[in-house]
Amino acid sequence: MLARYSRNVTTLSIEENEKLKNYSVCVVGCGGLGGYIIEMLGRLGIGHIISVDGDVFEESNLNRQLLSDTSSLGINKAIKAKERMATVNPLIEVKSVTERLSKENGKSIINGANVVVDALDNIESRLILEGICEEINIPLVHGAIAGWYGQVATVLPGDKTLTHFYGGKALEGAEKNLGNPSFTPAIVAAIQVSEVIKVLIGRGEILRGKMLFIDMLNQDYETIVCQGDVAYHT
């Protein structure tokens, strides 16, 4: 095995790590969450990453978005993800999509991915993404942040966890008032990546049919089991 992956072992077995190069993960949103997520996926050795973002970096991103720096202001975020990965781990193929995900283009963007990661910044788009993943049968790892707070859930086809939890309502999130500091995206991104890896290697327990709520102001972490009228309750 390559020396660059030697410290992945035995967290991952050599066989598990070897397999990662064959997988494709689509990261929708390359801002606060997405920047960290792509970094971690690439360093682990996920062979193919699709980075999706229609926005460019602006000064207000510099407090938290790993891919942003003073020289990249005005640069598209998905493109910057590809450029950075070329220096971090050139073995990883990054395909950049410089469009916002929509109902119209969503399917063609995420098609072929083994797992999709929700690193979006609004609830309306998250519900659209869940619908597309449901339609084409791809697992989705959801993460969202607001101030000191965050949440993570892993949604398998048939679950519709986000539709259930958000009640299908595209409300304006609390982050509009609370902002987002540097540390909240990092922790939520890390938990999302751990979920992606477990979905891919089929080991450990995932947050399926559950939502992990993170409150770093009180260091309180609570998992809520979703017991709605959805299909995964056996």
Partner: peptide, 10 residues
Amino acid sequence: LSIFPPVGGG
């Protein structure tokens, strides 16, 4: 009763 506000940032 568990009550949650929307969290949607990224």
